[in-house]
C-alpha cells in the first residue's frame, strides 16, 4: 500500500482493500476464459451484466469516494442508450456510427450530469435533496422517453443494431464473442483508469470532500467544482455504459430510466460494497445474474428478498461484501509491528 504516507488519508475505509488488485486480475482472468468454458449463452448475456457493472462503478465513484448518492445513474444510462440508438439509426455519418454512438452517449450523460451537478452543487444543495432531485431526473427521463415516441419508440422501445467494431464504415457487424471482448476491454480500461484517477491527487481531494468538506474549503479548494466534475465524470461513464448496452442488448426501452432500475443500481452497489470500485462491479454482475435466474423461478419473492437484503446491508454492513472480504483478509494477514 503505497499511499500510506499521504497527508490526507486516502479513502480510509477502502485503505484495507490492498487485495483489490489481485481480485481484479482474478476477475479479469475469469471473464477472459468464461465465454469459452461456459458456452454461447454466457457469451451473449455476460456483456450486458458487465455493463451493469460499469454503471455500478459510476455510482461507487460518487457514493464511496465523494460521499454523494445519486439515484439518477439510470437516467444517464438510458440517455446514453438512446443516444446510441439514434446514432445507429443514421446510416450516412461517413464513419462508424457505433463509435459515434459511444462518444455521444458518454457526452450526453456527462453533459446532463455536469449541468445538473453544477447547478445544484454551486448552490450548496443538501445531500438528501440531491438524492431526491436525481431520483426525479430518472422518472422524468422515463416519461420523456415514453412520450417522445417519434424519436424513442415510446413504450414499445427501440431496436438497436449491433455495432461494427472496425472504425471505418462498412465493417462487419460484431459477433457475440467479438463484442464480448470489446465490452470486456472497455469495462476493464474504464475501471483501471478510474482506479488510477481515484488514487491521484484529484481522487484524494474527492475523498477529502467526503471526509471533511469544511476543512477542504478552508484549505482553499472549490469543492463545488470538484463535486461537479466528479458527477459529470460519473454521468459520462454511465452514459458510455448505456450506449454500449444498447448495441449489446440490441434493445432500449424507457424502463432503463425508471424508478425500478435506478433503485437496482443503488442496491447493487450497497450489496457489493460502496467503498470499492470492484465491489460495485462484482455486486452488479452477481446480483443481476442472480436476478435473471431467480426472477424466472420465483419472480414475486426475488425483489422482496433484494429489498430486505438492501435494508440489512444499510443497517449492519456499511461496506457490503467487499468490506466483509477486506476485513476477513485483514484478519488473516499477520499483524504488522508498528
Amino acid at each position: 500500500m503505497s499511499h500510506a504516507n499521504s497527508t490526507i488519508k486516502r479513502r480510509p475505509r477502502a485503505a484495507h482493500f490492498g487485495g483489490e488488485n489481485a481480485a481484479a486480475f482474478a476477475l479479469l482472468a475469469l471473464l477472459v476464459v468464461a465465454p469459452f468454458v461456459a458456452g454461447d449463452y454466457i457469451a451473449y448475456i455476460l456483456p450486458q451484466y458487465m455493463l451493469y457493472g460499469l454503471l455500478a462503478v459510476s455510482l461507487v465513484m460518487l457514493w464511496g469516494v465523494v460521499g454523494i448518492v445519486s439515484f439518477g445513474q439510470a437516467a444517464f444510462f438510458a440517455i446514453g442508450a438512446y443516444a446510441m440508438g439514434l446514432c445507429m439509426g443514421q446510416s450516412d455519418l461517413g464513419f462508424n456510427s457505433g463509435y459515434a454512438g459511444l462518444a455521444s452517449g458518454a457526452l450526453a450523460g456527462g453533459l446532463l450530469a455536469g449541468v445538473t451537478g453544477w447547478f445544484l452543487f454551486s448552490a450548496g444543495v443538501k445531500a438528501t435533496y440531491f438524492v431526491l432531485i436525481t431520483l426525479a431526473l430518472s422518472i422524468i427521463t422515463e416519461q420523456v422517453a415514453v412520450s417522445q415516441s417519434q424519436l424513442t419508440g415510446g413504450f414499445n422501445g427501440m431496436f438497436v443494431n449491433r455495432m461494427a467494431l472496425s472504425p471505418f464504415e462498412g465493417g462487419a457487424i460484431a459477433g457475440d464473442i467479438a463484442l464480448y471482448f470489446f465490452v470486456l476491454g472497455v469495462v476493464a480500461v474504464v475501471y483501471a483508469l478510474l482506479r488510477w484517477l481515484m488514487a491521484s491527487s484529484f481522487g484524494t481531494v474527492l475523498a477529502g470532500v467526503r471526509e471533511n468538506e469544511d476543512r477542504l474549503t478552508a484549505l482553499g479548494y472549490r469543492i463545488d467544482q470538484y463535486k461537479t466534475l466528479a458527477f459529470a465524470l460519473s454521468g459520462a461513464i454511465a452514459g458510455l455504459a448505456g450506449a454500449l448496452y444498447a448495441t449489446t442488448a440490441s434493445f432500449v426501452s424507457p424502463s432503463l430510466a425508471g424508478v425500478l432500475f435506478s433503485t437496482q443500481v443503488v442496491v447493487w452497489v450497497a450489496i457489493g460494497g460502496r467503498s470499492s470500485l470492484l465491489g460495485g462491479l462484482v455486486g452488479a454482475m452477481v446480483v443481476a445474474t442472480a436476478s435473471n435466474y431467480l426472477s424466472a423461478t420465483m419472480p414475486q419473492y426475488w425483489q422482496l428478498i433484494l429489498g430486505v437484503a438492501f435494508m440489512l446491508v444499510i443497517i449492519f454492513f456499511k461496506d457490503g461484501f467487499a468490506g466483509m472480504f477486506a476485513r476477513l483478509g485483514q484478519r488473516l494477514r499477520p499483524r504488522e509491528v508498528s
Binding site: A270, L304, I314
Partner: peptide, 30 residues
C-alpha cells in the same frame, strides 16, 4: 424496528425508507 435507531443519521434513514418502499411495494404485489 428500524428508523428509531437512525434519527441521528438522516442520510441512512433516506436509504432505509427507500428499502422500506421496495419491501412494501413487493408485499403489495404479492
Amino acid at each position: 424496528l428500524v428508523i428509531r435507531h437512525f434519527y441521528e443519521r438522516p442520510f441512512d434513514t433516506l436509504l432505509l425508507t427507500w428499502a422500506f418502499f421496495m419491501i412494501v411495494t413487493e408485499v403489495i404485489k404479492i
